[in-house]
C-alpha cells in the first residue's frame, strides 16, 4: 500500500518528513555508496493480509515481522494507538479485535486475516465521541494522554467482559455474575499502566459510563 499523501501539514508530518530527508542526506554524503559494487538486496519475506479496521476493509502486503500495532500506525496511519513498551507490559497499544481487547504489539499483523479491528479512532472522533471518551474528558482521566487510547479501548472492553460474566481475580464467587465495582475495575484494568497516575479519575470515568456509583 502506498502512503497516503493527502494529509495536511501537521507537527507529526513535519517530523516524519524531516527524518526521511535526514536519512537521504546521509546516504548522499557517504562516498562509499557510489564506488561499492551493487550488492543484491535480500528483501525480507512478506505476506498478504486482509482485515477490517473501524469498518474499512484493508489489504496489505507486509514484512512478516510487522506487528498489528505497526501495521495500524505505520501503514494505515492510525496513530491513535500508541507504542509504549512494545512488550505487552503497559497496555498503551490496546485495541479491540473481534470484540476482545488485546495488546496489538504482541500480535503479528499477518495473523489477523479476516479480523475486525477497532481502534480508538473507531470508537469515536472529535465531535462524535464514544461515551467512554466523553467520560475520560469529564473526569480528567489522563494527564499526558499517552496511555489514554489504550485505557479507553480497554475500559470499553472491560465493561463488555463484566456484562458477559467473565470472572476476574477479585470476583468473590466464581459461579455468580461479576458486578461493576471499583475493586473489579482496578483489577481488570491492571494491564494498562498510567505513569502520570490518573488511575482514580480513570476509575471514576468507567463507573460513570457503567451507570453505577463507585
Amino acid at each position: 500500500m502506498s502512503i497516503p499523501d493527502d494529509y495536511s501539514i501537521s507537527r507529526r508530518g513535519l517530523l516524519a518528513g524531516g527524518a526521511v530527508s535526514a536519512a537521504a542526506a546521509t546516504v548522499a554524503a557517504n562516498p562509499e555508496a557510489e564506488v561499492a559494487p551493487a550488492k543484491p538486496v535480500r528483501r525480507p519475506p512478506t505476506a498478504r493480509v486482509s482485515f477490517e479496521v473501524n469498518g474499512t476493509a484493508h489489504q496489505l502486503e507486509l514484512d512478516t515481522r510487522t506487528t498489528l500495532l505497526d501495521a495500524l500506525r505505520e501503514h494505515l496511519r492510525l496513530t491513535g494507538t500508541k507504542k509504549g513498551c512494545d512488550h505487552g507490559q503497559c497496555g498503551a497499544c490496546t485495541v479491540i479485535v473481534d470484540g476482545r481487547r488485546i495488546n496489538s504489539c504482541l500480535s503479528l499483523a499477518v495473523q489477523h486475516d479476516g479480523d475486525r479491528i477497532t481502534t480508538i479512532e473507531g470508537l469515536g472522533l472529535p465531535g462524535k465521541l464514544h461515551p467512554m471518551q466523553e467520560a475520560f474528558v469529564t473526569h480528567d482521566g489522563y494527564q499526558c494522554g499517552y496511555c489514554t487510547p489504550g485505557q479507553i479501548c480497554s475500559a470499553v472492553a472491560v465493561l463488555d467482559e463484566i456484562n458477559a460474566g467473565i470472572p476476574s481475580h477479585v470476583t468473590a464467587n466464581l459461579t455468580d455474575a461479576p458486578k461493576v465495582t471499583t475493586r473489579e475495575l482496578r483489577e481488570r484494568m491492571s494491564g494498562n499502566i498510567c505513569r502520570c497516575g490518573a488511575y482514580s479519575n480513570i476509575i471514576d470515568a468507567i463507573t460513570d459510563v457503567a451507570g453505577v456509583k463507585a
Binding site: G88, G91, T94, R100, R101, I102, N103, L106, S107, S154, A157, V158, E161, A164, G165, I166, P167, S168, H169, T171, L174, T175, R188, M189, S190, G191
Partner: peptide, 28 residues
Amino acid sequence: ASDARVRRDYGLLSRALVAGASGQLRNK
C-alpha cells in the same frame, strides 16, 4: 477461565488463570 463447567467443577483452574497476566493477554 470463563467456561461454566470449569468455574463450577474445576474452580482451581479458573482461579489460577485469572491470577495470571492481564485481561488483554488472557484474551490472546
